[in-house]
């Protein structure tokens, strides 16, 4: 089966720094694909390239038969790619429910004139999106907080709200950037279930960037490891766990091993200082 989301030799420079270097990914439909690596490895940049936030310097990115490179971010969202952000980006002044409804704009049929006339189409759109948004909030256990300010939510709930908002787009591919950051063991376990459930229920393909090995090793079918923008390993969780290059990249092997049992508390991988000077040759 050919890949749904395909990156070929994707490269991105920031000035002299090569943040993503010749990365190729072939992500199959319905996969839960892990993208891991130490801080500053270029994972978020890969997401930003896929979603068009940054322009790719070299290589190609395709979703099915669609070439994503010439598309604007909003068109990429329309094409079926939704994402969450590592540093949460919610619409602060909007309520929890409204945050989801914004994502409904994409599929609405009524135009601005309809809205002013409050036509039947306008109401039909609004009611449909309202119902969809409410049931998504139920899924993420945020139903009772629908009218709260989105900034008043706990950290974990804000991350869940971001996922719910992304799901409102009815995406083909969901890109999750460190969704378990700031979650405790129980929440992370819940997240694992939710990711699998979303994949199964909505026929979704998930790309997961995550430091929490309890989550990564628990849900991913395949994992790609990046270090300094370069791909250093690819394989199943078992293969990655014992890969020497990966262990070396993470400066120690204990934390990876600890992710094996589900009853072990969540442990963050030792983290490289992203601000440390890069080794320039």
């Amino acid at each position: 089966m050919s890949a749904l989301l395909e990156l070929a030799s994707v490269t991105k420079y920031f000035g002299g720094l090569c943040a993503v270097s010749d990365v190729s990914l072939a992500i199959k439909k319905n996969a839960i694909f892990g993208l891991i690596g130490p801080n500053g490895a270029g994972k978020t940049t890969v997401f930003n390239l896929i979603t068009g936030v940054y322009k790719t310097d070299k290589g190609t990115i395709r979703l099915g038969a669609t070439d994503l490179l010439p598309l604007r971010p909003s068109a990429i969202a329309r094409a079926g790619i939704a994402r969450t952000f590592q540093n949460i980006r919610l619409f602060g002044q909007l309520s929890v429910l409204e945050n989801l409804l914004v994502a409904g704009e994409l599929t609405k049929k009524a135009g601005i004139f309809s809205a002013v006339m409050r036509s039947r189409h306008h109401h039909a759109d609004e009611d449909l999106h309202l119902a969809e948004a409410r049931s998504l909030l139920e899924v993420f256990e945020l139903g009772d907080k629908a009218d709260d300010a989105s900034t008043s939510l706990s950290y974990g709930n804000q991350r869940k709200l971001e996922i719910a908002r992304a799901m409102m787009l009815k995406p083909k591919v969901l890109l999750l950037d460190e969704p378990a950051a700031g979650m405790n063991y129980g929440e992370a376990e819940g997240l694992k279930k939710q990711i699998r459930w979303l994949r199964d229920t909505f026929d979704l393909t998930v790309v997961l960037v995550e430091h929490n090995m309890q989550v990564v090793m628990g849900v991913c079918d395949e994992i790609q490891v990046l270090d300094h923008g370069e791909p250093i390993a690819y394989g199943t969780p078992e293969q990655i766990r014992t890969d020497e290059k990966v262990l070396a990249a993470y400066l120690g092997d204990e934390s990876l091993a600890m992710g094996q049992g589900t009853d072990v508390p969540a442990v963050e991988l030792p983290v490289k200082d992203p601000n440390a000077p890069e080794a320039h040759s």
Binding site: A77, R89, L90, G92, V102, M168
Partner: peptide, 18 residues
């Protein structure tokens, strides 16, 4: 609503198709 979202966070609103 989309306009208000845009005002709050342009990158996030693009990511949801605005």
């Amino acid at each position: 609503r989309a306009l208000r979202a845009l005002r709050e966070d342009e990158i996030a609103s693009e990511a949801v198709g605005v």
